[in-house]
């Protein structure tokens, strides 16, 4: 380490950029993820639809997005799609969030599809045989069961998105990684800013892992609420 002669005060001097970077990273990730959940749920439901005109567009969308790099999607949206639609490029937030939502939705769609299909067929049949519509059966019977099984993969997807959000650096969105790049350029010191960026991502993913583990634990194994369990034990 002596060899590198690390000077950590560089980080302190540029702390404002890092604070902003963390904010931007979190904003992009959270917005992308929330949008990705809503759109992903719709695409996932579309992929279990028996109606071909619903199934195929959803399936093709998901396969296209999952089959191409997010970096390519980001550049198409930022440099081609938005300028073509609006006549000029939109800011990094619009392009960044749009890309993250559209990308995350495709991966979440697969999680929703697999989760829904993992629920035994008999559950849907029992619900339908009582007279529930497909939508009612989904809402009351299938999704509440499937969602529990989706918690771990949805958590993984959040962490993947948190890390992948660093790609927005290429459209000059001032996130954590972009801050490091600017600082490295300005100070001619690559080690400290990039190491610190890695450290910040690590803290964020570690925190997210802990929160996900907590949620997972709460909803794992048994459907019986703890309250009801206590009542039985007594």
């Amino acid at each position: 380490m002596d060899l590198l002669n690390l000077q950590w005060e560089v980080i302190w001097n540029y702390r404002d950029m890092f604070i902003r970077g963390v904010g931007i990273t979190l904003l992009l990730t959270l917005a992308g993820y929330c949008g990705g959940i809503v759109l992903g749920l719709m695409l996932g439901l579309g992929q279990v639809s028996t109606k071909k005109w619903i199934y195929w567009p959803c399936k093709i969308y998901v396969d296209l997005v999952r089959g191409t790099p997010m970096l390519v999607q980001l550049l198409i949206i930022h440099l081609a799609l938005f300028p073509t639609i609006f006549g000029h490029s939109l800011g990094y937030l619009a392009s960044g969030i749009t890309t993250l939502v559209l990308n995350c939705a495709a991966y979440n769609a697969e999680i929703f599809r697999a989760g829904i299909q993992s629920i035994a067929k008999g559950q849907m049949e029992a619900a339908r045989s009582l007279g529930l519509t497909h939508g009612q059966a989904m809402r009351k019977v299938i999704l509440p069961q499937a969602l529990r099984r989706m918690i771990p993969p949805l958590g993984n997807e959040f962490i993947a998105l948190l890390k992948d959000s660093s790609l927005v650096m290429v459209i000059a969105a001032p996130d954590i990684l972009y801050a490091s790049k600017v600082i490295a350029g300005a100070t001619f010191r690559p080690w400290e800013p990039y190491l610190f960026a890695a450290f910040l991502y690590l803290i964020l993913t570690y925190t997210a892992t802990k929160i996900i583990a907590f949620i997972e634990k709460r909803y794992s194994n048994s459907y019986i609420p703890r309250k009801a369990k206590g009542r039985l034990a007594r």
Partner: peptide, 17 residues
């Protein structure tokens, strides 16, 4: 129609949640 005709399955199919 289905609301008027009940069905009981071999595997019960109660809603576990």
């Amino acid at each position: 129609i289905r609301a008027e005709v009940g069905m009981v399955f071999q595997q019960f199919n109660l809603f576990p949640h």
